[in-house]
Design a binder for these strands. Structure first.
Lengths: 249, 249
DNA sequence: CCACATAACTTGTCATGACAGGTACGGTGC
DNA sequence: GCACCGTACCTGTCATGACAAGTTATGTGG
């Protein structure tokens, strides 16, 4: 009862795949069957299938009905911005424990990331993220003041910060994510319940508005036995992960 | 004079964008104009435009003709498969030192990755990769035997293995890359000239042919101060990096 | 029993036509 | 001069119809 027909068809198929109604490896209904079910022509049906194909949910080729390839691959943008959203798409229960939220002068590292002058006020948030109750990630986020101040009116342990800020009119449009590895410092080790010095997967996230104004900078550290990053690529479909080079000291 | 009509239209537009004929920021011909130019209906024209849009080459919205957004879309595929190619694209000099190349029975981990039975012969390659003479990555690759055997006729210290295998008719069409972090073991530490236990960025690479037959499996460990991975994403163009979940023990 | 040809089914591609909704521009009334 | 409105144009969406090309199952002849 919402948007265009092809979106409704795609949403329905997504739902049926996520719910297990259409098991992985099984064939989808043929185009003509979908046309009958929806009383639609082939155009919207094919558009819906193309959308799922672009998301890597289904595969298959000419002459064969499409096949369910993977169960959960959601919109990578929101997925990458919102831990809560990502966890729920996976069927897991996200959790969080806010260790501290503070207004203080910006740190040198964040100042460079956010293009701020030294000493400007920002909001720093330190959160422990849980998956089904297990600590898997520690998040050190710095928000620019105009955005971060909104967080003091929000219970950070309850909902998704990303969803909350979106509702407040903050447009998180672009993100840059630098992925590397670090050894756990004592704080990391204690909160993540791992030995000090263990290797952690780190994602440094720069999020900015559509206009390019910096919004937040975050240093997220994952337990590598709990979370990893995956890239799928083929010669045809174009992925967007780049291997970049840091300083070679 | 090749493939389907929509591919020819897309290829022509790509070419005109790359050549600068259609400058960045300028508007593309409208759909009806393209229909006239090609004597085609709107279906193939729209399919071509959708392809460019998926590549992030063009943007725009309802009511307005599409606008050229970017001129270049890098081919991350080869970049991700070939260390040599990547380094040269960056203007660096790639180097390599082959520590050992051996034919032996497949290890349990590689057996699962390559869908081989235990005990089957494979070719294992251990290489140290250099950037401007500095060790930055250690590569433990397992090739299935039919492919790996070709490597004994090749000087692994000279050229790109990827380029060599491509020339031999091996089609490396699809790749899956799982990125996480590990502590350096004694071998890693010695070869990469870092302390034992240091955090390393690990990429486990599964490469397969277009038909889906496994070709190689590799465990690559990067010095995180030398190499990191970067993702750029925006709400419009859809990137292909996924955050996936491992076992939470 | 097996190899092979055929038929049914499926997706890929494309033409034609139509309407809805957004944008941009010019003209009109104030 | 300025706000407002209508019109022309554009893209988004969808129906209908058709043919090409690939896959699968079936049936037939050897």
């Amino acid at each position: 009862m919402d948007g265009p027909l092809h979106e409704r068809i795609a949403a329905d198929l997504r739902h049926r795949i996520a719910s297990g109604d259409l098991a992985i490896g099984s064939a989808l209904p043929s185009e003509s069957q979908l046309c009958d079910q929806w009383g639609a022509s082939r155009a919207p049906v094919r558009q819906a299938l193309a959308a799922l194909r672009a998301d890597g949910l289904i595969g298959g080729g000419q002459g064969k009905p499409p096949v369910v390839r993977s169960t959960a691959v959601s919109q990578p943008f929101e997925t990458f911005l919102s831990f809560s959203r990502w966890a729920r798409d996976l069927g897991r229960t996200p959790g969080q424990r806010t260790i501290e939220i503070a207004r203080r002068a910006v740190s040198p590292e964040a100042a460079e990331a956010l293009s701020l002058s030294e000493g400007e006020p920002v909001v720093e948030l330190l959160r422990l993220r849980l998956l089904d109750g297990v600590p898997v990630m520690i998040e050190r986020t710095t928000f620019v003041w105009p955005v971060g101040r909104l967080l003091f009116d929000h219970d950070c342990d309850t909902g998704s910060i990303f969803a909350y800020l979106s509702g407040q009119g903050v447009d998180l449009a672009r993100g840059r994510h630098v992925i590397d590895a670090v050894n756990a410092d004592p704080t990391d080790a204690e909160l993540l319940e791992i030995p000090a010095g263990a290797a952690l997967l780190r994602e440094r996230r720069h999020t900015s508005s559509a206009a390019g104004e910096p919004i937040e900078y975050s240093d997220d550290r994952y337990r590598p036995d709990a979370v990893s990053f995956t890239v799928e690529n083929s010669q045809q479909a174009r992925p967007a992960l780049l291997r970049t080079q840091g300083l070679v000291s």
